[in-house]
C-alpha cells in the first residue's frame, strides 16, 4: 500500500539552515547536510530545501550545497527558491536534486512548468501554490505570499496539472505559522479535483493535525518546518502515532 509521506522543509540562507534548531546531538544544526541526515535518521520520507535568498551568486552556491546533500542523503529531495528558467533547473538536477519547486515564476510564465516537464519529466516538477482565503474565495499569492494575484486557487491547480506538474505543494497562508492545523477545506478541494499528488503545508502544530489532514483531505503528503526544527515533534513518534491511527506510513 502506498504510504502517506512526512516531509520536513529546510529554509536555506547563504548555504546555512535558518530558524533556530535544537537538536542537541547535532554539532552544527545550521549545516543543512547535518540536519538533513538527522531527518533521514528520524524517518523523513522526503526533504524540501528552500533557498530563501535566491540571488544569482547564491544560486551557484546552492548547486554546490545540492551536490553535498545528494552525496549523503539516500531519500528523494526537492530544491526550490528563485528558479526562473529551465537552465536553473538543469543545474540543480545535474547537481543531484530529484525535484524542483517553482512558485511565483510559474504564475508569471506558466509555460515554465511545461518546459521543465518536457525536459526532465513531470515527476520532477513540484508547483508550489501559496493560497489565502479572502472575501471572494481562495486566491493565489506570490512573492512569498505577499502579493495577491487574481488567480483562483482551484483554477490554478487544474492549470498546473494540465501543464505537466507532477505534484502540488499547497500552502495555506491562513494557517501558516499559526500551529492551529492545516487548512482542511482548500486542501480537500484541490486534492479531490486534481489527479496528481498534493502536499499539504501550513499550520502543523501537533500530531493530531497530521492525522486530520491525512484522514480528511486526500492529500498524499504533509510538510512542516518549525515543529520539526525545534524538536517539538520527532518524526519517529509522529509516524508511530499515525500508524496507531490507521494511517499508512513508512516505519
Amino acid at each position: 500500500m502506498l504510504k502517506k509521506r512526512i516531509i520536513p522543509c529546510l529554509d536555506i540562507k547563504d548555504g546555512r539552515t535558518v530558524k533556530g534548531v535544537n537538536f542537541l546531538n547535532l554539532i552544527d544544526a545550521g549545516n543543512p547536510v547535518e540536519l538533513a541526515k538527522e531527518y533521514v535518521k528520524q524517518g523523513a520520507d522526503e526533504l524540501v530545501f528552500l533557498d530563501i535568498t535566491a540571488t544569482i551568486e547564491n544560486r551557484k552556491a546552492l548547486a554546490g550545497l545540492v551536490e553535498r546533500i545528494a552525496a549523503e542523503i539516500n531519500i528523494p529531495f526537492t530544491v526550490g527558491g528563485g528558479i526562473d528558467t529551465v537552465e536553473d533547473v538543469a543545474v540543480l538536477i545535474k547537481a543531484g536534486a530529484d525535484k524542483v519547486t517553482v512558485n511565483s515564476s510559474a504564475v508569471k510564465r506558466p509555460e515554465l512548468i511545461s518546459d521543465i516537464a518536457a525536459q526532465f519529466g513531470s515527476q520532477c516538477v513540484v508547483v508550489a501554490i501559496d493560497t489565502k482565503l479572502n472575501d471572494d474565495g481562495w486566491k493565489v499569492f506570490v512573492n512569498g505570499g505577499r502579493v495577491p494575484t487574481p488567480l483562483k486557487t482551484m483554477q490554478w491547480a487544474k492549470k498546473v496539472e494540465e501543464l505537466g506538474a507532477g505534484e502540488i505543494l499547497l500552502t495555506s497562508m491562513n494557517s501558516d505559522g499559526t500551529k492551529e492545523g492545516f487548512s482542511l477545506d482548500i486542501t480537500t478541494e484541490v486534492s479531490r479535483n486534481v489527479n496528481i499528488p498534493v502536499i499539504a503545508s501550513g499550520g502543523a502544530g501537533s500530531m493530531e493535525h497530521f492525522r486530520d489532514v491525512f484522514f480528511h483531505t486526500g492529500c498524499s503528503a504533509a510538510l512542516a518546518a518549525s515543529i520539526f526544527h525545534f524538536g517539538e515533534i520527532d518524526i519517529r513518534d509522529l509516524k508511530k502515532y499515525l500508524k496507531n491511527e490507521n494511517i499508512a506510513v513508512r516505519l
Binding site: M1, L2, D45, Q123, E167, N195, P197, A221
Partner: peptide, 10 residues
C-alpha cells in the same frame, strides 16, 4: 487514482 504512483510502497 493519482498518477504518478509516487512515494513509498512495499
Amino acid at each position: 487514482d493519482k498518477i504518478p504512483h509516487m512515494g513509498w510502497n512495499n
